[in-house]
């Protein structure tokens, strides 16, 4: 779907950049990227550098960056396709695509651009315990990649003890092993630590035309 939007809007000074947050990198991302057949850059972030810089704790997380390099809307948990729960059929998320079209057309006048204080509050801020959790997480990723799975699990547990609601850590850790090692499934974790997204996707209604 990004390719559709990109093709449509590329002549209007617009680019899509995707960042795949996966400890195993290209090995696990290639099939998705090949399927998208993209002309836009699909970057591989095995160390969760961008997740740290942009203070995200789950995916998807979408940020709008304007021509000046300023974030004008942040941390949208928007998928580009929607899956019908009954039929399983995936359809494009036309609503979000329309919202992006509106921004590309209207720039800072788009009703979907958020004021700086709201943008800042949607992104939140990190703290020292998050830095500490990130140190455990990065060490865990390294240890797992070097054949020390048990030691990696200990580091992931330390990260999750500090930040139980960081779904990047939890989902990646479970993916490298199993939920059994953590004594809690994803569903149980949601019951215990709360929702998966810090902020819901909040889109103002389009103006009546």
């Amino acid at each position: 779907m990004w390719q559709v939007l990109r093709n449509e809007l590329a002549g209007q000074n617009f680019e899509v950049i995707t960042v795949g947050c996966d400890a195993k990198g290209a090995e696990v991302e290639r099939e998705f990227i090949d399927a998208a057949n993209p002309d836009y850059p699909c970057l591989i972030d095995t160390k969760f550098v961008v997740a740290e810089l942009y203070n995200t704790r789950n995916v998807p997380a979408l940020f709008w960056i304007d021509e000046r390099g300023w974030i004008v809307r942040g941390n949208d948990p928007a998928y580009m396709t929607r899956r019908d729960p009954d039929t399983g059929v995936r359809t494009p998320n036309e609503r979000y695509m329309d919202v992006v079209r509106d921004w590309v057309k209207n720039g800072s006048k788009s009703i979907y651009v958020t004021p700086p204080d709201e943008t800042q509050s949607r992104i939140g801020s990190s703290d020292e315990s998050n830095q500490q959790a990130m140190a455990h997480f990065r060490l865990g990723v390294y240890l797992d990649a070097h054949g020390h799975h048990a030691e990696a699990v200990a580091q992931f547990k330390a990260a999750l003890a500090l930040k139980p609601d960081n779904w990047n850590y939890r989902r990646q850790a479970y993916n490298l092993g199993s939920a059994d090692e953590y004594g809690m499934t994803i569903q149980e974790a949601m019951q215990t630590v709360g929702p998966m997204y810090a902020v819901a996707l909040q889109l103002p209604d389009p103006p009546a035309s």
Binding site: A26, P60, N168
Partner: peptide
């Protein structure tokens, strides 16, 4: 960061355009 083919990209290379930055994962 590198793309799937190993070519490096900087976000600031795209200054002057609107960029939709989309974080995703396979897990």
């Amino acid at each position: 960061l590198p793309d799937i083919n190993g070519r490096k990209h900087r976000l600031s290379d795209y200054r002057g355009k609107k960029v939709l930055l989309a974080l995703w994962a396979s897990w």
